[in-house]
Design a protein around this nucleic acid. Structure first.
Length: 410
DNA sequence: TCTGGGGTCCTAGGACCC
DNA sequence: TCTGGGGTCCTAGGACCC
């Protein structure tokens, strides 16, 4: 069965949204960053990339590449909003839209090729025009018989590209393609394959399957198929009922800390962020994980604990996180802390048995509503307020769950 | 002046039960 | 007084993606 799959990749998405929102930024080298001094570049405009500015760079490093670089503090809400509007536009062409990330989606347009949209190229032109019109954002589109190749194709021309890989082109394209260009082959896998003298997809596709499975186990077979440009995975449109597997937040602290009370304050904040999002999703979980990265950056550990029952209240998450903390001996000052809730299930909306419990639930719910409306930590627990009153910089009300502060550009 | 934050999936090994 | 094997649950950690 021949399929026609499109992969759509927004170009410099966050930076483009910012340039659209603020005309002064258009045509200029800009970089979207977080608010902490320990932030990195999350996206840069093409003007900035021309100077060598790259995602993941520290701001000072980027400034060295491009002295006139303009930093913009990111606003995730804005990006989420624009993203979902764009994904909605895609639905006009096919219901088979798989949201792959905030700025990428797959579309299976096999069933959409009628007299109205006779070719995938036509759909691509129309979609690109709509997105550019509504949001001033360009995107790169890849069209191919499967997801693996569509994703590969969209990467071939940027920005504003359109690349088609036809069945008859596959062998030629794969022959010299470096293996790391495939989605699914990362740095480590590349190194391993290189050590087997495999550098191109052509070589990977011709490799003896047994040799690959000996080295990589079950995925050996999959690797060979990838080398041949084969992929049967379907485009999976996910809906509202799509289950999340885990909810977690972590943050690099503004300074490394050792004092238990400092760590506890962060854990409370993280637990609150995790709990709030879990409740918004309508899930509770029974496994709580704590993640710690030490001051040297390279050493870290994670520890998890599975509880008897399911929880979603911030206080319960916090309690579990503290219990884990108390079960370990920290070896260094702490650079990053993370709290995660997993083993999730949708919780049925049962009424709490005791009035006290019910009141507590209602209090939490109204807090969630206020926070949703006015931003994180407008209303919060007493101990957090205390630390803010003291002028502590530890708990800043400007934090967002993403660690990115919402700041209006002009 | 160092290096963010959100996930998913897989594997290996231990505990425990039958 | 010791034995095999299967299954499930749990934890730790790694690889990969954006």
């Amino acid at each position: 069965m021949n399929r026609t799959i499109m992969h759509v990749d927004m170009n410099a998405f966050f930076a483009s949204v910012e340039q659209q929102a603020n005309p002064d930024l258009r045509g200029k080298p800009i970089a979207v960053v977080g608010s902490s001094h320990r932030t990195v570049i999350t996206t840069s405009s093409y003007e900035a990339r021309a100077f060598g500015v790259k995602t993941g760079m520290a701001p000072w490093e980027a400034k060295r590449c491009c002295p006139q670089l303009i930093f913009v503090i990111g606003d995730n809400r804005k990006y989420c909003h624009t993203s979902s509007r764009i994904m909605e536009m895609m639905q006009a062409y096919t219901p088979e839209v798989e949201v792959f990330s905030i700025d990428e989606a797959f579309m299976d347009v096999t069933g959409s090729l009628t007299h109205l949209y006779d070719t995938p190229e036509r759909i691509s032109y129309l979609l690109k025009a709509r997105i550019r019109h509504a949001f001033g954002i360009t995107c790169s589109v890849g069209i191919a018989p499967n997801k693996l190749l569509a994703k590969l194709a969209s990467d071939m021309q940027k920005p504003d590209g359109l690349t088609v890989i036809r069945s008859e082109d596959i062998a030629r394209v794969m022959e010299t393609l470096p293996i790391k260009d495939l989605c699914g082959i990362g740095r480590k896998m590349e190194r391993h394959l290189n050590m087997m003298s495999i550098y191109t997809c052509g070589e990977l596709g011709r490799c003896d399957e047994a040799r690959l499975t000996r080295k990589f186990g079950i995925i050996g077979r999959r690797l060979k198929e990838m080398g041949q440009g084969l992929d049967t995975s379907p485009v999976v449109p996910h809906g509202e009922d799509d289950e999340v597997k885990s909810v977690g937040h972590s943050m690099t602290l503004t300074r490394d800390i050792s004092a238990r009370e400092d760590i506890l304050r962060y854990l409370l904040q993280l637990s609150e962020m995790v709990g709030r999002r879990a409740r918004r999703y309508g899930v509770s979980g029974r496994t709580v994980s704590l993640y710690v990265r030490y001051a040297d950056f390279f050493s870290s550990f994670g520890k998890q604990e599975t509880l008897k029952g399911y929880i979603s209240m911030s206080g319960d998450i916090y309690k579990a996180a503290v219990a884990i903390l108390d079960s370990v001996e920290l070896e260094q000052p702490v650079r990053l802390l993370g709290v995660k809730l997993s083993g999730l299930k949708h919780h049925s909306e049962q009424l709490a048995l005791f009035p006290d419990e019910r009141r507590q639930n209602e209090l939490v719910r109204s807090m969630d509503i206020i926070n949703d409306r006015f931003g994180e930590f407008t209303v919060t627990f007493g101990s957090m307020l205390k630390s803010r009153d003291k002028g502590s910089r530890v708990i800043s009300p400007s934090w967002r769950p993403s660690g990115i502060r919402s700041v209006e550009v002009r």
